[in-house]
């Protein structure tokens, strides 16, 4: 079946099998490999992307279900000049990543979290990231990064 969707503000149109998951669509059809697969039970959140601005685990959405929607992946963050946005920058500043495998999903989850709750407490962040697993950082610096990003007020034009 042929499906169309906006991915990082680009119009995409590809033939897929009905059973194709959104994450495989993004990686294999669109060619955006920043989004990773870390499990097969919707537990780890490595595949987290934004669908219409809200975080979803792209291993739990069929590509066909996302037809007509707007998807944002890690490649879609930052500005056209290659500047990282406040969440990306906070992850670097706070050493919120090590091996990098959970990082795209983690950054998207934090992005979504801050949209819902612009001034979260540490407890809010920890609970909000419960569905995103990291084995390297012990979460300490990821939580720091989320809180640091929340203190940066981006200029929206």
């Amino acid at each position: 079946m042929r499906i169309e969707m906006m991915v990082n503000a680009n119009a995409e149109s590809h033939d897929v099998e009905a059973r194709t998951l959104l994450v495989h669509y993004l990686r294999d059809a669109v060619g955006l490999t920043g989004t990773n697969v870390g499990c097969d039970t919707t537990s780890c959140g490595a595949c987290t992307v934004l669908m219409n601005g809200e975080s979803v685990k792209s291993c739990t959405v069929l590509a066909a279900q996302a037809a007509g929607e707007a998807i944002t992946t890690i490649e879609g963050l930052g500005d056209e000049f290659g500047q990282m946005d406040r969440v990306q920058q906070a992850f670097q500043d706070c050493h919120g990543l090590q091996c990098g495998y959970c990082t795209p999903g983690m950054v998207m989850a934090v992005t979504s979290l801050l949209r819902e709750n612009p001034e979260p407490t540490e407890a809010d962040v920890r609970l909000g990231l419960e569905g995103n697993l990291c084995r390297c950082t012990g979460y300490h610096n990821i939580v720091e990064a989320a809180l640091a990003a929340s203190r940066v007020h981006e200029v929206h034009q």
Binding site: R27, T33, G34, T35, N36, V37, I74, E75, L77, G78, G82, M84, Q88, F91, Q92, D93, H95, L97, C99, G100, Y101, T103, P104, V107
Partner: peptide, 19 residues
């Protein structure tokens, strides 16, 4: 010193074997 490795992971993701 901040990690020099990070920008790639944070903008386009790393390049793992499956990528």
């Amino acid at each position: 010193v901040l990690r020099r490795e990070d920008p790639k992971f944070l903008t386009v993701g790393g390049t793992y074997v499956a990528d």
